[in-house]
Write a protein that binds this DNA or RNA. Structure first.
Lengths: 298, 298
DNA sequence: GAACTCCATATGGTCAACCATATCGAATGA
DNA sequence: TCATTCGATATGGTTGACCATATGGAGTTC
């Protein structure tokens, strides 16, 4: 038994008109083929749908039930077409998004809110991890988009878009001689002890700190290493060292630490980028990426 | 865009096999027409469902969504066929049932329970009214089945089946001289004052009381009339009259009243019948009627 | 580069769905 | 009784869906 749109429409027209002639007219066809179609329908179902009494056509109980179901089937079909098109156009769908730890605490929520508003049909699945892991997941297809740091050599199969830039600031103990300054030059810290991230943990930040000092003409005297940011903060708060950190950390004030902007400008920035697979054709990903770039520009 | 079963099955097979050749084989067809069918499908939707990369066929996000929807559409179609057949066979459906007031308090619940168990797909809509009204509603199509009293001249377009029989008993004041008897003959009451129902209210019972007395060779001395059973009960409880009532009323004991069986046997029965339209072809009604007769026999 | 895999394209045949016109047969009502 | 109404039936034509076989063409593998 096959329910063509046409067949369902014919039955519905007949169910409303309760008259073969009028229904046929409404369907822009002659009466005989309508009779035949209804016979085929009833034969196919093995069920009598119409109570053909002369001068008074009625639906049997089964016919009444079928009229409801027919309407539902038609609606379901249209809904499927609609939904598939929306998915194809990226207005609906699933996007798996990776991001690096707390560093995105400022921009990510804003972005998610904008996405929920502009692309309400999108379901975003979040996964937090380190940049290296995220890159791997993205390339293997486990993620569709990732907000990562420092993709210094960007893999061939990925494309990145700047998402947010964050200055590096000096983290000084409250009692440090420059803690009260409006800004410091990196070179002012050449004699200080530094605590820096180990290269293995968050290579991006570690490398950038090293480069920044290099450009200011000195190698930081590295008194200690730490595996993560909280480790760094501990050393600084204890008054033992100074360090360099992303400015966003100021949103998580730590007693004993003062953050002071660097006088040097552009080079000492940490950039967060949105990365996607170059070959990815998923429209939802592109919509989201488009939204990201638009919300990033101004 | 038309979603034939065949087309949906073809897409689903392809979505599972991820290979035109194997899918075609599973569908017992050759590969080219399958290619064509998928092209027609994609063209019809205006959406690319398949990511044809050499040696590795994938579904686009839209294709994945469509696979889910296609399965749903197929299930929905089968469900419709199933449902319509169940309605046609009376295993599912709506039946509007009328019944006369409290008189059915004993049998109706039992029947409804049996129906709910044996025909769980049936939705029964209950309506309580007087016999005359119910007969009218049944004939006009406002009801499908009615439990009524005394359809003495059964209208041509209705058929009735005995549902329950109920003896008529004497209702005597507690202090009546025969209140202690195990049974009374109607003729014993020839000298008593009677309270009877007015002919207009519940004509069936009123007429039957009159007939019963007539057969016992007397006309009851009618001291009072009442519009309903509670009115009757009031007169009897006050010790003013005797009356005749359906035995089931004993389930609602009234202080001051004793119910005593009549010695006369069969004629003094009140029968409740299940009535349906003779021309009604509704299978659900017949199922229910069949259940009724089966639960009535033994 | 030759063989192979895999999907697309080309061509042709069959059949059922779909439609129209003409007609029939039953029921209704004047 | 006769005209009318209304759905079923008869007959024939067109079309598109569906299938098969044969072939093309891109990409991979050895």
């Amino acid at each position: 038994m096959e329910f063509t749109k046409r067949l369902l429409e014919q039955f519905l027209a007949l169910a409303e008109e309760r008259h073969f002639g009028r229904a046929a007219q409404r369907l822009s066809m002659s009466q005989p083929p309508l009779s035949q179609a209804m016979q085929r329908l009833e034969r196919g179902l093995g069920v009598t749908l119409l109570d053909r009494r002369p001068g008074d056509l009625r639906l049997t109980p089964a016919g009444t039930a079928f009229a409801v179901e027919a309407r539902r089937l038609l609606d379901a079909q249209s809904a499927v077409v609609e939904r598939v098109r929306r998915v194809a156009h990226g207005l609906e769908g699933d996007v798996r998004v990776g991001y690096v730890s707390i560093l995105s605490h400022r921009h990510l929520p804003r972005l998610l809110r904008a996405a929920a508003e502009e692309l309400p049909g999108l379901r975003v699945h979040l996964h937090q991890d380190a940049t290296v892991t995220l890159v791997e997941m993205l390339r293997s297809g486990a993620l569709d988009l990732a907000f990562i740091r420092d993709p210094s050599p960007v893999p061939d199969d990925l494309v990145v878009h700047d998402f947010a830039v964050e200055r590096i600031v000096a983290a000084l103990p409250d009692e440090h001689r420059l803690a009260g300054a409006a800004s410091v030059a990196l070179s002012d810290l050449r004699e200080d002890d530094f605590v820096l991230l180990s290269e293995t943990a968050l290579p991006g930040l570690a490398r950038q700190a090293r480069l920044a000092c290099g450009e200011s003409g000195f190698t930081p005297r590295r008194r200690a290493d730490a595996d993560d940011l909280t480790g760094l903060l501990g050393y600084v708060a204890a008054g033992l060292c100074v360090s360099l950190m992303p400015e966003d950390l100021r949103d998580f004030p730590v007693p004993g630490i003062t953050f002071v902007p660097l006088r040097e400008a552009s080079p000492y920035l940490r950039t967060t980028v949105a990365a996607v697979r170059r070959a990815d054709a998923d429209a939802a990903v592109h919509r989201l990426l488009d939204l990201i770039t638009r919300h990033t520009g101004p």
